[in-house]
Nucleic acid binder design. Structure first.
Lengths: 151, 151
DNA sequence: ACGGATACTTAGCTTTGCTAATAAAAAGGA
DNA sequence: TCCTTTTTATTAGCAAAGCTAAGTATCCGT
């Protein structure tokens, strides 16, 4: 099947890997979407809450950047979390334009409980995996985290 | 931090891994969303098209199951792909209720070209990775594929 | 041949992403 | 100091993708 031209074998392999990761990510998320709801939160909300809980109070812009989303999108996500009592907005003491997002005790609690809950089907499937495979997935998550950080 | 109670160390580890994979998948997809568009297709459409191209003609229901989505969602996705001339609907010869989805030459071509295009930032980032890390990601994709299949 | 099951579609809702436009505050230069 | 530009966040409005509920058409078993 062709593939001549300027493409190196390395980038061909990287491209194939990218497509497979893309597909795996789509399917993983679709599965989790259904059941995220041990917590009652959708995936983007849970993800944002997690950053706020573990990343301390931070501005909305910083949170949007961390979540790789535009500010208006994060404004709305935070509005939902605030309405649910999981985070609070407060004025920045140093910058009148900025808003600091802070987790409430309820938000912290929800995340901790979710952590302890381990009901999700994915968790159960992972627990059934050979230790070796689980380790591979953990290393993969490390690599992807790193990739996301130095984009 | 606590974590006593009924939880085994294994499931605690699996749960942590599940959360990290969840987060990695979210961030991976958000990045790809921006640039999927070498092809002009959104991620779900590209994913569905890929299944149709490589999985031969198949019914809408089978496609929905493969994509872990409800039939009405797939109906709409296919409608968009059909409108774009990338797939065609045809009546099933054996079942008057069913619809077979088949890729058109244009759909096939788009996928092949996308494959050769390798413009995505992810591909480039992956190509820069040590071979060892890339291999880890490939193995992880294998494992996740398998997991998705025997859910 | 009838009644229940199955395959798909339609209708309508929610969430999440985006861009464009606006308001308010900060920063900087004349 | 004052005025302009930049930055931060919000509002408004659009599109895509997910869902459930309800409807239609076909199939299958009795």
């Amino acid at each position: 099947m062709g593939d001549r031209g300027a493409s190196s074998p390395d980038s061909a392999r990287a491209n194939r890997a990218a497509e497979r990761l893309h597909s795996a990510a789509i399917h993983l998320l679709r599965r989790l979407r259904r059941e995220d709801d041990a917590s009652g939160l959708t995936a983007p909300r849970l993800s944002a809450l997690s950053v706020v809980v573990f990343g301390g109070p931070l501005t909305l812009g910083a949170l949007a950047a961390a979540e790789q989303v535009r500010p208006p999108t994060m404004t709305r996500t935070i509005a939902a979390l605030e309405k649910a009592g999981l985070v609070a907005r407060e004025a920045s003491p140093t910058d009148g334009r900025a808003v600091l997002i802070r987790a409430t005790p309820a938000g912290r609690r929800l995340l901790e409980e979710g952590r302890a809950r381990r009901t999700s089907a994915l968790t159960r499937q992972l627990a059934d995996l050979p230790a070796h495979d689980l380790a591979t997935l953990e290393r993969a998550a490390d690599i992807l985290d790193r990739l996301a950080r130095d984009r």
